[in-house]
Computed example of a mutant assay.
Amino acid sequence: MTTTSAAHNKETYRRFHDALNGAADAPLIQKLIDDFVDPDLKLHTPLPLKSTGADSIKEVFQTLRRAYPDLHVAIEDLIAEDDKVVSRNTVTGTHLGEYLGMAPTGNTVTYKEIFVFRFADGRITEAWGVVDVLSQLRQLGAMPGGIPGGS
């Protein structure tokens, strides 16, 4: 894989990320995922998902947007090498909808995540994610050790 390919993958991911960050309605999010993600995506996360392939990413965004309608993902670092792009992010949102069985709290949460995306033919074909769910749960008051609204 050339440096040009890595740069192209990085730019493709940035376009995908920026479009998703600005999308609030489910049909647009689904279209964006269809445009940028391979239908047979392999998603490696510990999330309890009911779907597979690109539908798993749709399920994640549907769950997050329902829970945090003002969800915003800020890229802190974006690194590309060969066929992979790594994004270290800070996620913020206000808990206004059901999330992991919890009723809305109105709390604002801020948490970190890191994702590695593998590209083939200009599309995301595989993804690995590490998300600080413990921090989320503490800020929502579901786990001891945190102050609601703090990180």
Rank of each mutant, 00 (worst) to 15 (best):
T45H: 06
S5I: 13
L134N: 08
A54Q: 08
Q62R: 09
A67V: 03
A67G: 05
Q136H: 09
V131M: 12
G53L: 04
T90E: 14
K112S: 12
H72R: 07
L32H: 05
A74W: 10
F117G: 01
L100N: 13
A103N: 12
S135A: 15
R66A: 14
L71T: 01
Q62A: 14
E98L: 09
L43M: 11
P144Y: 07
V85F: 02
L100R: 15
A103S: 13
G22M: 08
D35P: 08
K58H: 09
G150W: 14
P148F: 12
K112P: 01
H95Q: 04
T12L: 13
T92E: 05
G22F: 03
L41R: 08
A74M: 05
A19I: 09
L49R: 04
E81T: 11
R14Q: 10
L100S: 11
V130M: 12
D25R: 13
I57E: 12
L43E: 05
G22T: 05
H17Q: 07
D82C: 08
P48T: 07
K42S: 08
L137S: 07
K50F: 03
A142P: 03
D77W: 01
G93W: 09
M102G: 02
G106D: 00
S51E: 13
G22W: 07
T108Y: 00
A74K: 13
G53W: 10
D121W: 05
S135V: 03
K50D: 11
T110D: 01
D77N: 09
M1N: 12
T12I: 15
L71M: 01
H8P: 00
L32S: 08
T110N: 11
P104N: 09
L71F: 15
H8C: 01
S135I: 02
G149Q: 01
L78S: 04
Y99M: 08
G106H: 10
E59C: 04
